[in-house]
Simulated assay, not measured.
Amino acid sequence: MNINHLRYFEEVCRQGSITKASEACHISQPSITAAINGLETELGYKLFSRVNNRLRLTHEGEAFQTLTNQFLKEFASYYEKACDLSKGRKAVLRLGVPSVMGTFFFRKIIPDFNEKHPNIELEIFEIATIDGIRMLGNAELDLLLGIKNETCYNNCDSKEIFATELQLAVNKDHPLASQKKIAAQMLSGLPLVIISKGSYHYKSIRSTFSDIDLNIIMNSSQLSTIRYMIRDNNSATIIYKDIFADDPDICCVPLERPMPAHVHVFWQKNTYLSAAMKSFISYITQLDF
């Protein structure tokens, strides 16, 4: 039984499609199909059935998926422990960072971290917190920077990096820039560009102002786009107050309905913390944000 075939199987389960799995794994569709067929021949039962042109796990397939997920997580832990036996090895750390926080974090941790830990290479993925939590559970990431709220992430442990809050960001010449606090009704009809749907950021804003008719004219995860829209006075945004702290053209004003945010570093619960992971967690939780 080839461990790569197990990884292909896991990706097919995740995607529900041979085509999408092949794209995610960067391998041809025939290779994925051959791997699944080989597993089924070796195991003596079908792993998938096809329903409405979409793959569905059989009863045996569901049980095999549970075993496979458990094994791959244990193997990842075993691999890290084995690599840690060599103190001088070059470690790769897969780090997820929400796109809106990327620039803010990068100027804080890079290149300083690289200089202090030359044997640790950061492989950074821009990913929303919610998606990142799922990727941690699937062992696709080692660590994730993101927001922790009242939702309990049962499959993760975490440590707080710093606390912040979301505020209204407007052009310095915008009428609302002179307000001490932004009442909810002030947002009604105001053109807004908001972080893309599916993010914690978007859901939090929608939940907090569910009774307000928000005029969201654009969803974007690109900080440069949001910055341009505000500077050109075409729109405002609700964003972490730290993001535009050094921009003289943008003013952040507190909201009357507070939106606190606690930024944490997350990792998979009950997993082995490699030396590289421990080094990064220690480093980032001691930074002065």
Rank of each mutant, 00 (worst) to 15 (best):
Y78W: 13
A236G: 04
E150D: 13
A139F: 02
N215K: 03
Y272T: 02
K197G: 05
N149Y: 06
M1G: 05
T19W: 13
I239V: 09
E74D: 15
Y78M: 13
Q167A: 12
P260A: 02
N215G: 05
S274P: 03
D288C: 08
C83D: 06
K269W: 05
A276P: 02
L57S: 01
N37E: 08
A35Q: 00
T151W: 10
L287P: 03
E165D: 11
E23R: 15
M1K: 06
R50Y: 09
Y272S: 02
P248N: 10
I212N: 00
N149Q: 09
M135V: 06
A163L: 05
E123I: 04
D173M: 09
F105V: 12
L136P: 01
N53F: 15
I238K: 00
S17A: 05
Q167N: 14
N155Q: 14
K87T: 13
I226S: 01
D84N: 06
D249E: 14
Y228W: 09
I217Q: 12
L176V: 10
D112E: 15
R206N: 13
K148I: 15
S220I: 02
P118S: 03
N154Y: 13
F266K: 00
E11W: 06
P260N: 06
R50D: 15
A177H: 03
I216Y: 01
M1T: 07
A276F: 09
R89Q: 08
Q286T: 12
P111C: 09
L95D: 01
S207Q: 10
I109E: 02
K180W: 10
G146Y: 02
E11V: 05
S99T: 08
A63K: 12
K269N: 11
Y283M: 08
G198N: 11
F113P: 01
S282H: 11
P254R: 01
I230P: 00
Q286P: 04
Q15A: 09
I161R: 07
P175Q: 07
M135K: 12
P191M: 04
T41E: 15
T41C: 07
L93R: 06
I133H: 04
F244V: 03
N119V: 04
H264S: 01
R107Q: 15
S220Q: 05
P175F: 05
S178Q: 04
S158L: 07
L95K: 01
K46D: 14
A169E: 00
K269V: 06
N234E: 12
F75I: 08
Y153D: 08
K73D: 15
M218V: 12
E80M: 14
V12W: 00
